[in-house]
Design a protein around this nucleic acid. Structure first.
Lengths: 193, 193
DNA sequence: CGCTTCACCGGACATGTGTCCAGACGCTAG
DNA sequence: CTAGCGTCTGGACACATGTCCGGTGAAGCG
């Protein structure tokens, strides 16, 4: 039995989880990535460490959850605006700036995304699928969600996904700032159209 | 005084370091990334943990050093072959397959590269510069090493670096295998020329 | 040959991670 | 009012990280 049997959180539990994720952001903002401890976050959230561990299996899981929540909170891709290129650039910029408000948080996310425990893996797959779908929606907005991209579109999509992940990695390593990264991503998108 | 005063290793020291980096590769191959412990690596190398820590400040530093050594061991970029595109693809494939022989090692490298301690930062910068230079050399082989790329070349170079880092990240996260990743990188390069 | 120096040893230490469990707390229902 | 239930607590645990330091053996020098 590897999957949990209860799949929904009570109101109170959901609140605890929210307090934890909020506290995680504050903590990394206040003390940086190094001072970022599960126990510190729990204390900031006014919660016992053991409680934090009942909702998150690891530090990486907690950070990944923050990223995932921000990604999921984005509004649907707007199908209206003119050229595909512009829409793609907009989507890229949007997801590039997801965690850019605090560089330490972004570095934490990049690193946490690489975690090995099952919960991180699960979230990672969802995140990958979500980004893929958003870029695809920007590329061919009028298609059904079930429609397959042409081979050419698949290649462009692949290139865009690589570019996004690469930009995230570069920023996470401190090669460049996040604002710069968003601009360079736009340049890459322009090269591909 | 932040920098060490002795800048060269004795024969014996160099040997100890080599035993450690070799043992690190074997260890990650044998027990995976999770069982990868500085103390385990030291034991495998026949060395005391304290000794390992005199040469590597952290686990991340050790892994990063492995990556750096492999990168530095590559032969110079061959200026001869025909099209720039082919040379670039060759360079990309070369550095993509650097650590591909064992996926666990690659995941370890990707994660370690993000470390925050000064030694990792230093190596990271060197790695970034090296990759940049190799791609540039493939792009315009006849130029002096001091020559600056044109704005257009700079954009392509930037896109290539993003693509490489993104591919590494994707592979590190287990989205795809390394062989697949190398092929997709080639596709990206073709889109850019 | 004896002495110094250099690299390595081994073990203690403080801190963080993730797990576990008995028990305390407050809300709700009988 | 009180019993039960779901949730959180506090602290112990095993293990990893990275630091520190007194001690040891062997190579190299006078």
């Amino acid at each position: 039995m590897t999957e949990p049997t209860r799949r929904r959180l009570s109101e109170r539990q959901a609140d605890t989880v929210r307090r934890l994720t909020d506290a995680a952001v504050e903590e990394v903002r206040a003390t940086g990535f190094d001072g970022f401890t599960v126990r510190n976050v729990a204390r900031r959230a006014g919660v016992a460490p053991a409680t934090a561990y009942t909702y998150f299996t690891s530090r990486n899981h907690l950070v990944t959850e923050v990223f995932w929540r921000r990604l999921r909170a984005l509004p649907p891709v707007t199908a209206s605006a003119g050229q595909p290129r512009e829409r793609v650039v907009a989507v890229l910029r949007e997801i590039a700036l997801l965690v850019s408000d605090e560089p330490e948080l972004a570095a934490a996310c990049t690193s946490a995304l690489l975690g090995t425990d099952p919960d991180v893996r699960e979230l990672r797959l969802r995140i990958g699928r979500t980004i893929h779908r958003r870029l695809l929606a920007a590329l061919k907005p009028d298609a059904d969600s079930g429609a397959r991209p042409t081979p050419e579109e698949a290649r462009v999509l692949n290139a865009l996904e690589f570019a996004y992940a690469g930009a995230l990695l570069h920023a996470g390593m401190g090669y460049s700032s996040y604002a710069e990264m968003a601009d360079r991503l736009a340049e890459v998108a322009e090269l591909l159209f």
